[in-house]
Simulated assay, not measured.
Amino acid sequence: MVKEPQELLAFLLQAIKHQGRNAIKSLLGRGQISVNGRVVTLYNHALKPGDSVSVSREKIVEKPPLMGLSILYEDEHIIVINKEAGLLSIASAQETDLTAYRQLTAYVRLENPENRIFVVHRLDRDTSGVMMFARSEEAQQLLQNSWQDAVKERTYVALVEGKVRKTEGTIKSWLKESKTLRMYSSPYPNDGQLAVTHYRIMQTSSEFSLLEVELETGRKNQIRVHMQDIGHPVVSDKKYGSKSKAMGRLGLHARVLSFDHPITGIRMRFETEIPKQFLNALRDVRQST
């Protein structure tokens, strides 16, 4: 019986003396821990005085493997993932099965069939990196209503064609969408959605530049359009002018996402590695010259 407010993992570490932290996390992952008769798999589930915690000898939850994504963080309100290139964020008319959204919905429903996932923002199919979903409608609404204020850092790395001359710069334009669903910068001020992109050079070779790109606004295909606008399209981005076949994937990765938690207000920051393919493409060029 729980006597004071605390997280589930902390309670279990105190209550099960002969088990280590990893062993207890395994019990949680296999659905062997119940709170008030309900299976709970979140290690940071908040316990209240009077709650009853029980341990089952049998595995209840066998979580399926997640394809094309890994979970960086989850709690009762949000779930943060690292998405691989090639995986859709949410369903499109062409594909309704393998998406991050559908996989995560199945994942959270193993804990409770009524659990849901809510879309907060998206990454293009061929863009990899950090992405967040909400686990409650309240969290989704709070994030979407204050996205510009809640997000403190949203940084990408882009491998682009050619040697960018300016060490750093800012690209500003008004984005519109054509009838063929292709975004472009309008030549007229205030004609479309304002898009502002900041970049700085991280590495260069004779054929490519690796840029750190920070979004001031988050428009559809913003980085891809802006890189084409300055004459340095993202590698493998045929839609926006790339001629290079240096990689079998788009040269764009959402590396950092930092935000204030919608419920607790705590500042959170998630950073991933630069994809090896980006660095290899730069290295291969240097070695061949």
Score class of each variant (00 low, 15 high):
159 L>W: 02
110 L>S: 00
239 K>D: 04
162 G>C: 10
228 Q>A: 12
98 L>S: 08
49 P>C: 12
182 R>T: 08
29 G>V: 06
287 Q>F: 14
141 Q>F: 10
194 L>N: 08
13 L>N: 13
248 G>I: 02
85 A>Y: 00
78 I>M: 04
233 P>A: 06
140 Q>G: 05
254 A>G: 03
260 D>F: 13
14 Q>K: 15
89 S>T: 15
194 L>P: 03
207 E>T: 10
278 F>E: 01
40 V>S: 11
69 L>K: 06
21 R>H: 08
83 K>D: 05
77 H>I: 02
75 D>Q: 05
111 E>R: 14
154 R>G: 04
132 M>Y: 05
225 V>D: 04
285 V>Q: 07
126 D>H: 06
182 R>M: 11
285 V>N: 07
285 V>T: 14
17 K>M: 07
168 E>Y: 13
67 M>N: 15
26 S>D: 15
40 V>A: 12
178 S>F: 08
30 R>N: 13
162 G>L: 08
23 A>N: 12
101 Y>T: 07
172 K>W: 01
28 L>T: 10
92 S>R: 11
246 A>L: 08
65 P>T: 07
64 P>T: 09
285 V>D: 08
186 S>C: 02
13 L>I: 12
99 T>W: 04
17 K>G: 02
285 V>P: 02
41 T>S: 12
119 V>F: 00
234 V>F: 03
117 I>F: 01
258 S>Q: 09
237 D>R: 00
244 S>E: 09
249 R>C: 08
24 I>D: 09
222 Q>T: 00
223 I>C: 04
164 V>W: 01
273 E>K: 14
140 Q>D: 09
205 S>Q: 01
147 W>M: 14
178 S>D: 10
51 D>F: 06
201 I>D: 04
60 I>R: 15
242 S>E: 08
72 L>P: 00
80 V>R: 03
217 T>L: 00
157 V>C: 07
244 S>L: 07
11 F>D: 04
75 D>W: 01
190 N>D: 15
254 A>K: 01
155 T>P: 01
158 A>W: 01
138 E>I: 13
116 R>V: 05
110 L>G: 09
270 F>Y: 11
187 P>A: 10
10 A>V: 14
259 F>G: 00
51 D>W: 07
264 T>A: 01
40 V>C: 12
37 G>T: 10
85 A>R: 03
103 Q>F: 02
66 L>F: 08
261 H>P: 10
190 N>K: 15
265 G>H: 12
50 G>T: 06
198 H>N: 14
138 E>W: 10
130 V>L: 05
21 R>S: 07
68 G>C: 07
176 K>N: 13
283 R>W: 11
148 Q>E: 14
58 E>W: 09
106 A>F: 10
83 K>M: 06
112 N>I: 05
250 L>D: 11
130 V>W: 03
233 P>K: 02
163 K>Q: 15
277 Q>R: 12
168 E>Q: 15
129 G>M: 00
93 A>L: 15
144 Q>P: 02
243 K>R: 14
8 L>S: 07
224 R>T: 01
88 L>W: 09
27 L>N: 07
55 V>H: 14
199 Y>Q: 04
46 A>T: 15
10 A>S: 15
106 A>H: 12
82 N>A: 11
203 Q>G: 08
48 K>F: 11
44 N>Y: 06
266 I>H: 12
118 F>W: 12
276 K>V: 14
120 V>M: 02
220 K>Q: 08
245 K>P: 00
110 L>F: 04
62 E>V: 13
195 A>F: 03
